[in-house]
Design a protein around this nucleic acid. Structure first.
Lengths: 392, 392
DNA sequence: CTACTTTGGCAACGCTGTTGCCGAAGTGCA
DNA sequence: TGCACTTCGGCAACAGCGTTGCCAAAGTAG
């Protein structure tokens, strides 16, 4: 993109509006609609119908958009519906958990078209894990994955619809992807803390061998496609942002307790991408000492309760902490995920929901639900997002 | 602006880039520099030098920008510095506190050029207070305050530099402001909760007569200029956003405890503009009951300590709650303001600072300071912000 | 069959930032 | 003092963006 520190020039204008249209088309597909008319696109973007016509004509020529029949007439010519061509591009998402690896391949519309899942020993160290990841990604996306660098949408490189994925085909760098569908990149979700920009892992509690490991760079070298790295909680929030719009908080309870914030339709990561430190929110002044050094953190309270088998208390603690976030950030929804939640989903949802209802300050209460998508899907969304104008 | 739901057209592009340039010019002035060269503007906006030349030429023709001498040569022609013309526009800020009224008039550069302050009985009810506000605003901005509606920057209406402010001059609606400087609007900061969009106050604790009062509409009718209404804490955060960039939290301790969030250079208000509910963050599970109905809120803990004269404990409570926010949102700075803080500033700054340092998770510690500007200045910033591309 | 409504493409247009060019105004060296 | 060099910044021509005006296509309603 040709934008510096906020300055917009004409190419940036074009790609911005194009991404906006694509985003609406994706949204229509996600909501189960057969397509969306040009008029509605114009109305919802604020652009004129003619501008939308030009943009969609370009997208159709590029193979990203196709016509999808006709809508009902409202007294005149019925609108021609448009839809995204899902197979025009794919993204791979990797969820690197402490004892499990899950890899998915999504099409442009966000549908899972391939999945690999298996046990993983995160403690085996970077080299062994990278090997395993490369193998799983190749299995989920068996295509010569070279793609024009830095080009989220392969402009001028029309992708043949539904072309067979031929294994082992290597497409020269910078060339059009002809023999298989374009793989836009790989998103990797890993336990935090980590440096998202540099693509380097931080000091994951209990796994010192990983500290400072440049996972993104190594994977890019092995796979030959762009790789993005982010915290697992942020990936969860990214998935939530796509599934249902609106501000939400993704609370993950696994080996630790973390959260991903989805504010204004985008994942909020903070200045140094360290936002979402939810587990070490102090909830009980002078309470039991946590491994972080502070006293009365959510994590120690919640996980102690889980260890005691007191799920109700764990849910109550989580609920109080979530209610703090809801009040502070004015979010609509709290989404729960992670292994501990998966072990007793109903108990957590009702327990957290009860606290949220009791703590509601205004007439509206934030809703609680299980996180609809997986973390691996959210990791893939890190790659798909920029195509649709999400995340900068 | 010609932008709908994110769609950008050419006029929007133009005003966006123009606002960006103005913002950089204001920033240079705020940092005490005599001006800024076109080259630097180009570099920092990402636009080409020629585009910056065109934009600044337009701004100079409109009287918003002027040349400001020359910089040092770096081996060639020395750059011609540019600066904002502060007197090209003014904004009025009103801080409506429970027992005090403060009104300031700022020029475009953010300097206070007039100030009125006096006692106020918020409990006297809307009518009496509105009368008082109108009187104070007229005193601080004694100009016929009609301005082309909805036009933050009076385009094509060159404002004569340094023209004398003639009292009582009424400029017909839609006409250029000729005889005085343009007053862009009035920002009003009031105790929350309130509906910012509608400009209607909510149920301010202890003042039922104000609930549902359409303050913005009434004031616009009386004053004849655009009026913006926001929570006092948001105004404080807005001022902080201008003074020093970066993410920060403005914590206000007065009759209640509240916070304004400044994320990514803008005030974050949340979906229903209810964000910043800091006072009722639960910090001590099952602690003393708060007036909000919950138990162990920051507000009840902090204000109880203040009532007992235990400033150190109040600061510690505030510090723990602030540390939660710092960890959650990854902000750099915590700013303290409000009457209780003003009574013992050093104790609060050191007390909060100590907790932040102890709770720091990474190598960096968030800094604490007294809020640099007042709430009234922040209220005026609500009006000035859009001119410089802040806040949508 | 005849209005009427709505969709959506074509062509001309205005305005945006960009490129190429050149004069202006300094510095540095012979 | 003179000349080469560097940097700044305006003028003119330009490419590309969304917009406007116009009209054919494809339905509905009477």
């Amino acid at each position: 993109m040709n934008r510096g520190n906020g300055g917009f020039n004409l190419p940036a204008l074009r790609s911005h509006n194009t991404a906006l249209v694509l985003d609406l088309l994706r949204g229509a597909g996600t909501r189960g609609l057969p397509g969306i008319g040009r008029g509605e696109l114009a109305e919802r973007t604020g652009l004129t119908p003619q501008a939308v016509s030009k943009i969609t004509a370009r997208l159709r020529a590029e193979g990203l958009v196709a016509e999808a029949g006709r809508g009902e007439s409202t007294g005149g010519k019925p609108r021609t519906l448009l839809r995204l061509v899902p197979e025009a591009g794919h993204a791979v998402g990797v969820h690197l958990d402490r004892d499990e690896l899950r890899v998915v391949r999504l099409d442009l519309a966000g549908q899972v078209v391939a999945e690999r899942r298996g046990p993983l020993d995160f403690g085996a160290g970077p080299e062994a894990v990278v090997d395993e990841v490369v193998r799983a990604v190749r299995a989920a996306a068996p295509v010569g994955m070279a793609v024009p660098e830095g080009a989220p949408v392969p402009e001028g490189a029309p992708v043949p619809e539904g072309a067979p994925v031929s294994e082992g085909t290597v497409v020269p760098d910078g060339a059009a992807v002809l023999d298989g569908t374009a793989v836009l990149g790989v998103g990797v979700a890993a336990p935090g803390p980590l440096d998202r920009r540099a693509g380097v892992l931080g000091r994951v509690t209990g796994y010192p061998a990983w500290a400072g490991f440049a996972l993104r760079e190594v994977l890019e070298g092995r796979l030959g496609v762009p790789v993005l790295l982010d915290k697992d909680t942020n990936a969860g929030a990214a998935e939530a942002a796509v599934m249902g719009a609106g501000d939400s908080v993704y609370v993950h309870v696994g080996t630790g307790v973390g959260a991903g914030l989805c504010l204004g339709g985008e994942v909020y990561r903070g200045g140094r991408s360290g936002a979402g430190e939810f587990g070490h929110q102090v909830l009980l002044l002078d309470g039991p000492t946590c491994r972080c050094g502070a006293r009365g953190c959510v994590e120690v309270l919640c996980l102690d309760a889980v260890a005691r088998g007191d799920t109700a208390e764990a849910a109550r603690v989580l609920g109080e902490a979530a209610a703090n976030l809801v009040a502070l950030l004015d979010v609509d929804r709290v989404l729960l995920g992670g292994r501990v939640v998966a072990a007793a989903p109903a108990a957590f949802v009702t327990g957290v929901g009860a606290v949220l209802a009791a703590r509601a300050l205004g007439p509206t209460t934030a809703t609680v639900a299980l996180a609809p998508g997986g973390v691996a899907e959210g990791a893939a969304e890190l790659v798909l997002g920029p195509v649709f104008g999400r995340a900068r």
